[in-house]
Design a protein around this nucleic acid. Structure first.
Lengths: 251, 251
DNA sequence: CATCGTAGGGTACGGCGTACGCAAACACCC
DNA sequence: GGGTGTTTGCGTACGCCGTACCCTACGATG
């Protein structure tokens, strides 16, 4: 059942992102305070913990009061994302290009995004339908595109290359989090988990064709003590990417 | 509050994945039928539509009856994923290696995964904490590793390279879906959406530093009529990746 | 002091996963 | 056939979620 959202709502979301929000009411409730409360919850307990009720509780306010300031949860999330994107480069659009050659610039961009995901893992759970057009997200995008500008890539290729790099960072960060988080959540290390299922697995997994995966699994397990090493995949993959981009780029 | 899951539960999940499930009860309910109902719902309406209640409705059965056959929703999802992974290569572990040189093999692997995401977009929404160890997933992994085997990559590098490629496919497929889906959901094309927010955006977005992103945005918009082109990013990114992997691989 | 727009919040609806425990159907033995 | 123990199926309920609707009560204004 497609329901076309009124143009008015879309405009409202844009205005909200750019600081056009209602003045604080008599209880002192305001958009910045709501966003701050949401960020606190998300950083501490993840995106799932950010419910309208819990944000309201955090502020000593009724759940429905939030709706006077924010149209709904999606907009709140967008505001949170934009707020956090301010941390990446400190509003300095030349931050990446100053790092040296283009490879260093891209490495810097990747590292800043990696750091962002470490500081705010919930960013990995935000799946917005449309791109975020907030002020800080826009400056972040500008900064990152500049890292690739003037190297001989077409505009189309710049967009694709940046997407490629950022997707790689996000996927690696997601894998990294999945590993560390399930360890702390279940109180069970990867090795313990593996030991726990091995009996059942060997009893049941009698497929004789799994030769390569068995060898690789053993090597990886022996090397990292885990099934995979997200940080290794991150750095190795980034260098591989850079090497793949090299033919396209001058100096 | 970490709660260590009993070893027994982990083993049960493994057994379940490998076909050790209770016999059909008197109402004819069985694990395969539950999984089939879940797949039907997921393919038609997405993963969110797969609730225990709706699966049960589909089968003309009470919601709680499902729990006699399946420990919980996570296990049902794992079963669904494994079932669908059977489609990728038809259990032929040499399917990729037969495609020609290693580049063709990797292109084939990427294409099969892309197809899988087109047929079952809900796969993109599955975020399992631990790797799926089902029979079909295992064979899929074997098939994909073989595409990279014997080319001079170490075991560690094979794992990283495969992850790199599969992450790229998943991210591209996700972007592709986000684009087509939000269009059909909102009844609003990318161009219409852009037109709807442009007035508000130009009024508010007066940042003079956004020179490169403005230029790139215009070029991309003029070329693809959209903010981004996921299919282009997919193919261009894949070739870039292959070129980055080339130095590591012989023939 | 009276009025009134509005910020704030209470209640409610329809969803979710699933813990718990009862009822009905079956299998089995006498 | 009758009784009995076990299994299967499911109804109810709990605590979450986002948010629509509407009323209260406050603050500013005249």
């Amino acid at each position: 059942m497609p329901s076309r959202p009124p143009v008015q709502d879309l405009a409202r979301s844009v205005y909200l992102l750019w600081g056009h929000h209602p003045a604080p009411g008599r209880s002192g409730l305001s958009v910045p305070r709501i966003v701050a409360a949401g960020l606190e919850l998300a950083d501490a307990e993840g995106l799932d913990a950010v419910s309208m009720r819990r944000v309201a509780d955090q502020l000593g306010v009724g759940a429905m009061s939030l709706y006077r300031h924010v149209p709904g949860k999606d907009d709140l999330t967008a505001l949170m994302v934009d707020a956090v994107h301010a941390e990446a480069y400190g509003d300095d659009v030349e931050a990446a290009t100053r790092q040296g050659d283009w490879k260093d610039a891209v490495r810097y961009v990747a590292a800043r995004n990696w750091d962002l995901y470490q500081r705010h893992p919930w960013l990995l759970d935000v799946h917005a339908a449309r791109p975020n057009l907030g002020p800080h997200t826009s400056r972040k995008y500008e900064t990152e595109l500049r890292a690739l500008d003037g190297g001989g890539l077409s505009d189309i290729e710049m967009e694709a290359a940046l997407t490629l790099v950022l997707n790689h960072v996000a996927a690696s960060a997601r894998a990294h989090r999945a590993q560390t988080r399930t360890v702390s959540d279940s109180g069970m290390t990867d090795a313990e988990w593996w030991a726990a299922i091995t009996p059942a697995l060997t009893q049941v997994m009698t497929d004789p064709d799994l030769t390569v995966s068995a060898r690789v699994g053993n090597t990886v397990g022996a090397t990292f003590n885990t099934a995979t090493s997200p940080t290794h995949t991150y750095t190795w993959g980034l260098e591989t990417l850079l090497s793949g981009l090299t033919p396209h780029l001058t100096p």
